[in-house]
């Protein structure tokens, strides 16, 4: 039990730290938020009134205290651009991002798992080298570039799919494929190297010597042990998946959180920027916390560590 409590406390402290960093970051924005609300032609009295209204004249400590207090009440403030509550804006966009993320991660991860396990059998064989090289090359193409190639092939040349937008399953295919390709190469490589390393280990050799059938060897012994690092990486990968989402959503005009964040940054909409970054950080933290807790269940030895 102490293990679980420790993990949760650690996640909470990381959350407070993240909130502090985000707070500091958005406070050092040199541009005046009052100007971005009222426009460049506003008179000084209006600007002063807006500043007073937003509490921008208070000392930093007071502002941070207020920020955490509001966070504790799930209040992320109001968007400068639209005046809507940041939490409402985020909730309105989270569905699109979740759809894209789950589809692409699901497909990419499962395909990667299958290919990784299927090719891990013999280290040093031709197929082993092929997987290593293919994943190395495949991971070198940035998602925004892959997305553009897909648009060229399937939207312009074949005229099969829309080149962006949102609404039907046809709109989902290209962005989901783009991200799924990136995720596939990542997991194929990771699963491949981990299962290969497990197969080479002593206890697998023992199991083989004892006459365990190959499918049992792979599925029960090797995969189960390789699963621990794979699950860890799945948790950590959520953070880099966010990066891929930002780029892919921008390429395909996908109305998700990633594009929202980019628009907020360019519009100097500080509460919206802080809100989306914090929201993303909370998701990553939660994913990692779940992984940590799962660990404690899968492998009781971890609890003592």
């Amino acid at each position: 039990m102490a293990y679980f409590a420790r993990r949760i406390l650690r996640a909470l402290s990381t959350l407070l730290g993240t909130a502090f960093i985000i707070f500091m970051l958005v406070r050092v924005v040199p541009a005046d938020p009052a100007v971005s609300i009222a426009g460049p032609k506003a008179d000084p009295e209006t600007l002063a009134a807006i500043r007073k209204d937003l509490g921008l004249d208070d000392p930093l400590v007071v502002q941070y205290g207020r920020y955490v207090w509001q966070l504790a009440h799930a209040d992320l403030g109001r968007s400068y651009m639209t005046g809507r509550r940041v939490s409402d804006v985020i909730l309105a966009r989270v569905g699109a991002t979740a759809l894209l993320a789950v589809t692409s991660l699901g497909i990419g991860f499962l395909l990667g798992l299958v290919v990784g396990v299927a090719t891990a059998a013999r280290r040093g064989s031709a197929i082993d080298v092929a997987v290593l090289l293919a994943t190395l090359v495949g991971l070198s193409f940035p998602p925004f570039w892959l997305g553009n190639l897909l648009i060229y092939q399937f939207s312009y040349r074949l005229r099969l799919l829309p080149l962006g937008g949102y609404g039907s399953v046809w709109n989902l295919i290209l962005p989901a494929t783009t991200l799924a390709i990136v995720e596939f190469f990542f997991y194929a490589r990771f699963v491949h190297t981990n299962v290969a390393a497990t197969i080479a280990s002593d206890y697998i050799r023992t199991a083989r010597a004892k006459g365990a059938p190959p499918e049992r060897l792979y599925l029960v012994h090797a995969l189960r042990n390789a699963l621990i690092p794979i699950v860890t990486v799945l948790g950590l990968d959520i953070a880099s998946l966010m990066g891929g989402l930002v780029l892919t959503e921008t390429v395909f005009n996908w109305p998700g959180l990633g594009r929202l964040a980019v628009q907020a940054v360019f519009g100097l909409d500080i509460p919206l920027v802080a809100g989306t970054v914090l929201f993303a950080a909370v998701l990553v933290l939660l994913a990692n916390l779940i992984v940590d807790l799962l660990y404690g269940l899968i492998d009781p030895r971890v609890q003592r560590g």
Binding site: I21, L25, V26, A261, T276, V277, V284
Partner: peptide, 13 residues
């Protein structure tokens, strides 16, 4: 802390 933060978003900011 650094691993948890969505780095591309922070980079953009």
């Amino acid at each position: 802390l650094f691993l948890t933060m969505p780095s591309l978003l922070l980079l953009i900011v």
